[in-house]
Each structure stands twice: as C-alpha cells, then as structure tokens.
Write a protein that binds this DNA or RNA. Structure first.
Lengths: 199, 199
DNA sequence: AAAATTTCTTGTCCTAGTTCAATGCCCACC
DNA sequence: GGTGGGCATTGAACTAGGACAAGAAATTTT
C-alpha cells in the first residue's frame, strides 16, 4: 500500500524505517470519483496529493475562458497548487480536477508541518521535488517558446507515452498551447508522413 | 553588507542571530565584470548566487541558435541553474551571463550542504524560495500561452519596471518569446495609442 | 571625435497557427 | 438499441507574429 509513495519520497533522500513510519502514519488515504473539481479558482489549496491511481489535470482559465493545462497527474505524481498569490492580482485561478476515478494519499498543510516538525529531513525531500518540478516547468516554457506545434507534440509523446490513451486529445492541445483543431492537423500530417518513406 | 541577503533569506522563515551568523560566515563575496559567462552550456552549475549589485541573464539556446531568456536577475535575486539534467538528453543548455558589472554572494553546493548540516532550518527557506520561483515560472508559462504580445509586454513593464532601462530591448523580446522586431512594433502601437484619446 | 558596432525602427512579404463552420464518430446512458 | 452530447477531423478564410532587409539612432571603442 505504501510502497509507491515511499519509493517516490525516497528517490533523492534515503529515510530510515522510523522516518517512513512517521510519514506513513500521517498520510490520509482518499478516493475521489471522476470529474470532481478538487480545487476551484480562488480557493486556498488545502492539500498536497500523491496519485496512487487515476488521472487528474491542473489548469488555469484565461481571460477568454480557455483552459491552459499546467499538469497531468497520473500514478506516482504529486499534485498541489503551490502558487504564491503575489503574482496574480486576482486570487489564483488554478483548478484541479479528476479525469478518472482516483485514489490519493493526502497531506493537509498542517500535517505537513507536523511531519517537518517530527522528521525534519523530509523538508529536504520536498525541496528536491519542488526543484524537479521547477526544472520540468522551465523546460516546458522553453519548448513552448521555441518549438513548433509538431515538435512539441512529438516530445510530449516521448515524455508521456501513456497519457494520450487516457485523456481526450483536446486536453493535450491545451497542454501544448495549441488549438485542438491544429493538433488534429498535425497528427494527420504525421500519419501521412509514416505512410510515405519513413526516415 | 549582509542586510540585503539576510532580509531575503528571512522573508518567509525567521532566523536567530546565531543562525544568520553561520549563514553569513559561509558566504563568498565575489565581483564579476560585465559580459562574463558564468555558466556555459553543458557545465555543471557549481554556484548559487545572490545578486548584491548588477544584472545577469539566464538563458537557453534553441535549435536555431536563438536565445530564450529564462530569467533577468537584478539586485536581491537568486540565480542558479537548478535544472535536473534528467529531462534533457543533452547536458543542460543553460547559460548564465552578466550584463553589467556585478557583485554577488555565492554558495558552492558543498557549502550549501554544510549550511544545512549546521543549521537545518535553512533547508526550509530554500524550499520556499524554490516554490516561489516555480510559481513565477508557472504564471509565465500561462502568460506565454494565453496572452498576446502586447499583453505580455504590458505585464512585464508592471512586474519589472526597472529592467527596460537596464537591458537592451531585444532581450526583453526574447524573455517574452517574441521577435525583437515585433516588440518594436508593439511599442510603436502603444505610443500611438497614448497620443490619441487615452483611456 | 571619428569609426565601428550594436540596437532600434519601419516596411514588405510570408507562414504557422487560429477561428469558424460542417460532418461524422463514438461512446455512455435511458 | 436508439439517441444525444461530447470528440475528432477537415476545409476555408483569416491574423498575429516571423523573417528579411535597409536605414537611423545610440553606444562603445579607439
């Protein structure tokens, strides 16, 4: 039951049996059905979730009502809204929504505090997770600015090969920052390329 | 001398006099002249720098040789390459370069380790800095995807009003993910708007 | 202070990607 | 086992922004 999350948290910092016991004892196990909005815009995010099973998306809504997807979270992903409201005049417009029936381990901010209190080395593990997340986001910003739609889609398929089978295509378009119609055209072009002489 | 950096590190975690003394004793003060490349692509970044004075830029180079600017760092900013090379097959293509004569406080990875060893609560402060950085980057990704060039430029001016006076315009274009020529046209349009009836 | 280099502007032409339909598809659900 | 509502596809018309070029302005170097 706890092996997935314990592997995840131990990836860059190794913990003793005792530390992991404390960690596990503080986790709250939760099931959430498909299509549940777990965080609405303007709300404070009062959880940090580890996905045991299922698939969620985290997204902004822009001025024209369009979704911009920040993250797909599948098995073994950490999901939370970590944003500082400083950078938005309005309260954070982040939504978190399940796309399949999901199972999570969750922390409230308070239990996370309690964890750091009892076993301070977890602070480090979470710092490193954050850093990794930042690294991925920077890389994605770079891609968004400098690559064509097709290049972005190809890289997406490489990085997240299982996601296209699980979520509707227009969500992937939204993640890539292109229109759903154009993604469809990109795919058509790629399929045609494969029929011809393949390089 | 230490007040700037001590204020910065104490912003979200308050430290005792003793902790700050340890912190300050580990800092290395350094001057770096204008136009120095402090980190080349493919190198491991062996510093974490706090800008006391001056201005730097951190950037990627894309497949066509164009710069994509990730960060302008001015007074009181933290600059480092935090990326996990995991997400790039090639070694990280991040450059860090001074744009003015600069003064820094620096940590090597080892002294940062030593700091966490001696005063573990700094781990938390750095986690929060990282979180803030992530929040800013996510917001920027959102802007890059969902806003027009003019909207992005207007927000940039609001968030970083002093930077346009310090760096060449084409760097700002690169930060915003638009061409230098187009930024020039956006500015021309805005100036014309101001001459007319202002709203 | 002249020369050299970099930066900024402006115009023209071009294209990657958007918007708006229209059509068909694939399910989930009574 | 229909049927209704999201999905994907395709096409046509459009546009925000890019690429290129050439001149003007500013800044740096000598």
């Amino acid at each position: 039951m706890y092996t997935q999350i314990n592997n995840s948290i131990s990836r860059y910092v190794s913990f003793t049996k005792e530390e992991l016991d404390i960690f596990n004892s503080l986790l709250e196990h939760k099931k959430v059905p498909k299509k549940t909005i777990m965080l609405h815009e303007g709300e404070m995010c009062n959880f940090e979730a580890f996905v045991i099973k299922g698939c969620i998306r985290k997204y902004f809504i822009d001025a024209n009502g369009f979704e911009v997807i920040l993250q797909f979270g599948i098995e073994n992903a950490w999901v939370s809204d970590t944003s500082f409201s400083i950078y938005e005049d309005k309260p954070s417009q982040v939504f978190i929504e399940t796309m399949e029936d999901c199972e999570f381990f969750m922390f409230s901010p308070e239990t996370k505090e309690a964890l750091f209190e009892k076993a301070p080395r977890f602070e480090r593990a979470f710092r490193i997770l954050m850093q990794r997340n930042l690294s991925v986001t920077q890389h994605r910003l770079f891609n968004t600015i400098s690559k064509t739609a097709m290049e972005k889609y190809v890289e997406f398929l490489e990085l997240y090969p299982t996601i296209p089978q699980r979520v509707a295509q227009h969500y992937i378009a939204s993640y890539l920052g292109i229109s759903a119609e154009f993604l469809s055209k990109v795919r058509a072009k790629m399929a045609k390329g494969i029929e011809g002489i393949k390089i």
